[in-house]
């Protein structure tokens, strides 16, 4: 499981800049960031170093931040890489709440999913998927 930093922002000009400036001033490096939006608010999902400490720092500064456990899986960077993973989840009856992918090196990509349920990593591992470890992505 990977600890993802999640921040709630109002969907208004200046909100993302004040968040990222805060994180930058903290000396924290971000490795991935995905922003989902609704009409009123956005949810920013971030992989960064020391996510727990950053979440605490942000809450202290008046942001609404939390740490969410997500599943990250290496897939080959080729057609069907994600499809095979998604099909497995479908067959196993796992509901994917949200997900995103990013390229890791030349041959691989990391697919990140938020899936409700326990021991998802083990189920994926047993099915032959290569699980990404936190230290692969960020400093602990």
């Amino acid at each position: 499981m990977i600890s993802q930093l999640t921040v709630f922002l109002q969907n208004e000009p200046g909100k993302l800049s004040s968040l990222t400036r805060k994180i930058a001033d903290n000396g924290t490096n971000m490795h991935a960031m995905f922003l989902s939006d609704t009409q009123d608010f956005g949810i920013v999902r971030i992989f960064c170093d020391e996510p727990e400490a950053v979440a605490a720092m942000l809450n202290e500064s008046g942001f609404r931040a939390s740490v969410t456990q997500v599943n990250a899986v290496y897939v080959p960077n080729e057609p069907g890489g994600l499809a095979r993973l998604a099909e497995f989840c479908d067959k196993a009856g796992l509901n994917i709440e949200y997900g995103y992918c990013f390229k890791a090196g030349d041959d691989e990509a990391i697919d990140v999913f938020k899936i409700d349920g326990d021991n998802i990593d083990f189920a994926l591992q047993d099915a032959g998927f290569k699980i990404a470890k936190p230290e692969d992505i960020y400093a602990l």
């Binding site: 999640t6 709630f8 989902s36 609704t38 608010f41 949810i43 939390s66 709440e97 949200y98 938020k114």
Partner: peptide, 11 residues
């Protein structure tokens, strides 16, 4: 503060 803000669906 203890409400999980991670999922758009729940919000």
């Amino acid at each position: 503060p203890d409400f999980q803000i991670d999922e758009v669906r729940k919000l």
